[in-house]
């Protein structure tokens, strides 16, 4: 039993699985129409222009696109500590520097605008993860607004909502109408159960219309992934079931585990089980 990578325990929507099977007949053809169709569907879902939706191979791919669009050599990015390791990896692949802001265990890893701004020193990209991995904490939308207003012109705030479906907190995507220094990351890997297909996207400001063609690979996502993502979007019942099931599991872990746990709005729970000594019984994995 593997409960280490925040995958969907219910798998993908059966409709998405069918879509992958159907796509098999056409995998000799480059994915073009399906890319346009998924982009249009997502633009409609988020009430944004199609040029504001950057489909990518997972949210990881979207992080790379943003690094490529934003970073010149030695440009610094600001990432949470603890936090998701790929922000820093991507920045380094693009010859950027990595700086960190601390989330404090003593403070239940609370994330406010000041948590970030106290460490902020003009970095080119600031990453916020909400819900946060691995803590499960969210940043309130009002705090994200304060952060967007508090950074310099020329800084992009990236709000990574890889676990957004599991949270009560509304998406920061609605702020894209008012701020042109915000990008929001979403993925089909978690609530939609498509981690193996590698499909996600960034939602970006309207002013960025031309940048996608410059930073994306010509065919960013596979035909199978694009079609599965469309089918998955249509199966709202599967997402609802996944979200409800995660909420139940969080409660169960909070209530029944005989160790302190942290409040989570994601599909995982951080638990303080030891004094910090290495625990050979609990092997580790990425993601």
């Amino acid at each position: 039993m593997k409960l280490s990578s925040n995958e969907n325990p219910h798998g993908a929507s059966p409709a998405a699985v069918d879509a992958v099977r159907d796509a098999a007949a056409e995998i000799s053809v480059y994915p073009k129409a399906a890319h346009t169709d998924l982009t249009a569907k997502l633009a409609e879902k988020w009430d944004l222009g199609t040029e504001q939706v950057w489909v990518s191979p997972g949210a990881d791919g979207a992080i790379d696109y943003l690094s490529r669009a934003m970073l010149d050599p030695a440009d610094p990015v600001l990432v949470p500590d603890p936090g998701f390791s790929y922000y820093g990896m991507s920045a380094r692949y693009h010859h950027g520097d990595v700086r960190r802001y601390e989330l404090s265990k003593a403070d239940d890893f609370a994330m406010t605008a000041d948590t970030v701004l106290d460490a902020y020193d003009g970095e080119r990209i600031v990453f916020v993860t909400s819900p946060h991995n691995p803590t499960g904490a969210t940043m309130a939308r009002s705090e994200i607004e304060s952060l967007l207003s508090g950074v310099d012109e020329g800084t992009l705030v990236v709000v990574d909502e890889a676990y957004g479906e599991f949270a009560e907190e509304p998406s920061a995507a609605a702020l894209l109408d008012d701020y042109d220094n915000l990008a929001v990351l979403r993925t089909f890997s978690k609530a939609y159960g498509l981690a193996g297909l590698r499909i996600g996207y960034a939602l970006v400001p309207e002013a960025w219309a031309d940048a996608y063609a410059k930073v994306s690979t010509p065919f960013a996502a596979s035909e199978a992934a694009l079609r599965a993502a469309m089918a998955a979007l249509d199966d709202e019942a599967h997402v609802e079931k996944s979200v409800e099931s995660a909420a139940w599991a969080r409660e169960h872990i909070h209530e029944q585990l005989e160790a302190p746990t942290f409040d989570s709005e994601a599909n995982f729970v951080l638990c303080a089980v030891g004094d910090g000594a290495p625990s050979p019984r609990l092997p580790s994995r990425r993601a």
Partner: peptide, 25 residues
């Protein structure tokens, strides 16, 4: 059973448990 040891996150003594099905959890 595999859960995520969070030492690499700088959180020794912590684990992250993904939500499984009801039976798994």
């Amino acid at each position: 059973m595999i859960v995520r040891d969070c030492s690499s996150f700088g959180l020794p003594g912590c684990i992250r448990i993904s939500c499984g099905t009801e039976a798994e959890t």
